[in-house]
């Protein structure tokens, strides 16, 4: 048996273990780099592209990718790379709002349903069943048509459409943990139900929900950009990933870069988010 010398001695190897875990998986490492870049673009867009995303040089319209214009230029001569970089802020904000809505509302409902049980559980879960019978994209569309257009409304619509699946996962996890032997052991040794909820059920049940949230991040990017593409999000001059592709649609035959590059950025971001989610999922399973 090894002898551990204090708290620090146990944390440092753990951190080193995490780093090692990542380094040994090039795909995961790349995903983390992509996400970091996207985050950087969203928070400090000028660091990556210092031009103005809304002003173009008409002389340089519809130029292909080159050293000067990494992603080429659009029909007004605006640099596409700059527009993509500046667009990530809006796209990412919408995604975060969507995930937060789904996580907070869905997780809360699932927690209540799972822990309280009884008729409340029955009513909530039947509602969830029905909502899940409606495809998510359609549910978002219905919400958008009721709420109106705009990026924030799109984000809320996308988030609400995912509430059902979060509620379901959270409830299932709460039930799993609640019926686990260690919770029964805690109850048998006299722990009150409030303490069981906060000390045992919540920490052990929230893991899968956070994994779902990471996965939902990718789904939300896709949904938000699809709704923007359809024209329900930000109005045209604003750079937003889905809008950029919609703008480029008219030039598919002549200027391929206008749709290809923003799409690649979306795909790379979603792929990275999914990869990280899978790593989190794997970590969790190893823990058990």
């Amino acid at each position: 048996m090894t002898t551990a010398t204090g708290f620090g001695a146990r944390v440092v190897p753990a951190a080193r273990g995490h780093a090692w875990f990542v380094v040994r998986r090039p795909g995961l490492l790349l995903s983390l780099v992509v996400l970091a870049l996207v985050l950087l673009a969203a928070v400090f867009p000028t660091l990556l592209a210092d031009g103005d995303p809304l002003v173009g040089t008409p002389r340089e319209r519809l130029q292909g990718p080159s050293g000067a214009h990494l992603f080429g230029t659009d029909q007004l001569g605006r640099d596409l790379f700059t527009r993509v970089v500046h667009g990530s802020s809006l796209s990412l904000r919408a995604t975060v709002v969507a995930v937060a809505v789904a996580l907070v509302v869905g997780g809360g409902l699932g927690l209540v349903a799972g822990f309280v049980g009884g008729w409340l559980d029955a009513v909530l879960m039947r509602t969830v069943d029905v909502v899940q019978a409606i495809p998510r994209l359609l549910l978002s569309l219905a919400l958008v048509s009721a709420l109106g257009f705009g990026t924030t409304k799109v984000a809320i619509a996308v988030g609400v459409a995912s509430v059902a699946s979060f509620a379901r996962v959270m409830r299932a996890e709460v039930l799993r943990v609640r019926s686990s032997v260690y919770v029964e052991a805690a109850r048998a040794s006299g722990v009150r139900s409030g303490a069981i909820l906060t000390r045992h059920v919540l920490p052990n049940a929230s893991g899968p929900v956070f994994v779902l949230a990471a996965l939902e991040f990718g789904v939300a990017i896709l949904s938000v950009s699809a709704l923007s593409f359809l024209g329900f999000g930000a109005p045209p001059p604003t750079p937003e990933w889905g809008v950029l592709i919609a703008d480029g649609r008219g030039f598919v035959a002549t200027a391929w870069w206008l749709t290809t590059f923003p799409g690649l950025v979306i795909a790379a971001t979603v792929l990275s988010a999914n990869r990280v989610s899978r790593a989190l999922d794997g970590e969790r399973r190893r823990e058990r």
């Binding site: 032997v181 260690y182 052991a185 805690a186 006299g190 722990v191 303490a195 920490p203 052990n204």
Partner: peptide, 23 residues
């Protein structure tokens, strides 16, 4: 089953203290 009856997130100390805390 000693694998299932201990909360995987607790340290051994926390596990043994839990009944004391409860009372």
């Amino acid at each position: 089953n000693p694998y299932a009856s201990l909360d995987p997130r607790f340290t051994v100390s926390e596990i043994v203290e839990e009944p004391l805390r409860a009372y």
